[in-house]
Simulated assay, not measured.
Amino acid sequence: MASTSGEEASFHTSFTLVSGTPPPVSFVVRVVTTNIIMSPRGPDPTSATAAGLALVEYRRWKKEQDKLAKIMQDLPGVPTKIEFTDIKRATRNFHDTMKLGKGGFGAVYRCTLPASASRTGEPMEVAVNKFLAEVSIINRLRHKNIVPLLGWSYHKGVPALVYEYMTNGSLDQHLFRRREEDATISQWDTRYNIVRDIATGLHYVHHEHEPMVLHRDFKASNIMLDSTFRARLGDFGIACTVAANKSYVTGIAGTFGYIGPDYATTGKATRKTDIYAFGVLILEVVTGKKNTDVQPDDDHITDWVWRLHRQGILLQAVDNNILTAGAGDIILIDDEARRLLLLGLACTNPNPSNRPTMVEVVQIIKKLASTPQVPLERPAFVWPLQD
């Protein structure tokens, strides 16, 4: 790596998302690269020191990445390594013509791996994610509603995880950017099943998996849809495990609009902070609106839906694009929509102690428990928190 004299030495981390489809193997790639940028500003007695520190930092980072890659090879359940050259070749060296779009962590590409790169030797749709820290969690998760890890790749300090490719992309692409070909998302059954699938996946990481996993970034763009629009929870990049004798992890993470008042106040992530985000997501699925894309007088989707609930016109929140086939269909949709809207409000109760658990949530969605009782007036946030 060449160095340049200068007053400034800074590290810039960039993320590249790479996506692909058949034939014969398709995938999405997210890799991380680190570049050291030094701006020449003429002679300066501190420039050599700055450059030296930058070089030392880079070497330390590179050594850690190599060590982590070695650890990843030894982790139980992690599949075969996929050569980075196959990924690079499949994306035509990440050429613009292969680009599908741009996500939160960079560009998304469409590409095809040869069958020889597949562990089965047969066509396989996959997705590749750069987060090495994520592997310690995701490699142990086995559930039909969680995007499965299939393999990994590593090149010059750049790690990547390989996931199954979800044909219909992420939920936000269909829910908020409606196109004529997105008629499936206008079917009520599709939306109800999406909520059920997400709830089942969250129940698994909260109550079935040991140790417990907190996702910490529940949102529509992290819900992936397969070819039949069944939903799977993805992107565990900032997820964390919680020890059996502990109920929270300190440190705010996540996305604006999905963070509850308790999380913002305490900085402690718990099951109930994931449930708040899940409640926001329920309201988005039923209404077809982003959590901040509501009426001018309302700052957030919870403000709007709770106001309609107070006025006795809750069902006016249901997306007008929902398709109905007949009178009986309308009655069913009204009943299920009311159930989900009230569940969404219950999950976003400002006070975490009053939110349902994921055990209760799944029972409500499966109609094994009654629709939650939600007060007409949204409760005030109580501080300090009540157990």
Rank of each mutant, 00 (worst) to 15 (best):
121 G>F: 13
126 V>F: 05
305 V>G: 11
373 Q>I: 10
104 G>C: 02
109 Y>A: 08
364 I>R: 11
256 F>P: 00
314 L>I: 02
362 V>T: 10
264 A>L: 14
380 A>T: 11
285 V>L: 03
101 G>N: 09
10 S>N: 06
282 I>D: 01
194 I>W: 07
43 P>R: 10
158 V>S: 15
350 P>C: 11
182 D>R: 07
224 M>E: 05
251 G>R: 05
172 D>W: 03
138 I>K: 08
150 L>M: 11
365 I>Y: 05
35 N>I: 01
21 T>G: 12
31 V>M: 12
209 H>Y: 15
273 T>A: 14
329 D>H: 15
355 R>S: 07
124 M>Q: 15
91 T>Y: 06
79 P>C: 03
120 T>E: 15
125 E>T: 11
82 I>S: 01
216 R>N: 09
255 T>F: 07
146 I>D: 07
228 T>E: 15
40 P>R: 02
249 V>G: 01
326 G>Y: 01
252 I>G: 03
366 K>V: 00
211 P>W: 14
272 K>C: 06
148 P>A: 01
361 V>Y: 06
295 Q>W: 11
71 I>G: 01
67 K>R: 13
7 E>M: 03
231 A>E: 05
51 A>K: 06
311 Q>P: 00
23 P>H: 11
89 R>G: 06
383 W>P: 02
115 A>M: 12
146 I>K: 05
380 A>L: 15
303 D>W: 09
383 W>Y: 12
212 M>H: 05
349 N>K: 07
74 D>S: 15
181 E>P: 00
316 Q>S: 13
12 H>K: 12
66 D>L: 10
11 F>M: 14
8 E>F: 00
57 E>M: 10
8 E>H: 03
379 P>W: 02
218 F>D: 01
38 M>I: 08
186 S>C: 11
334 D>W: 06
218 F>Y: 10
367 K>F: 00
325 A>Y: 01
210 E>M: 10
110 R>Y: 11
245 N>A: 12
300 H>A: 08
307 R>K: 15
280 V>S: 02
323 L>S: 14
85 T>H: 05
163 Y>D: 07
379 P>M: 04
376 L>F: 11
22 P>F: 08
19 S>T: 14
310 R>G: 01
269 A>P: 07
125 E>D: 13
75 L>C: 06
216 R>V: 04
241 T>I: 12
303 D>M: 10
364 I>T: 12
182 D>T: 02
174 H>L: 03
251 G>E: 03
314 L>R: 11
22 P>N: 08
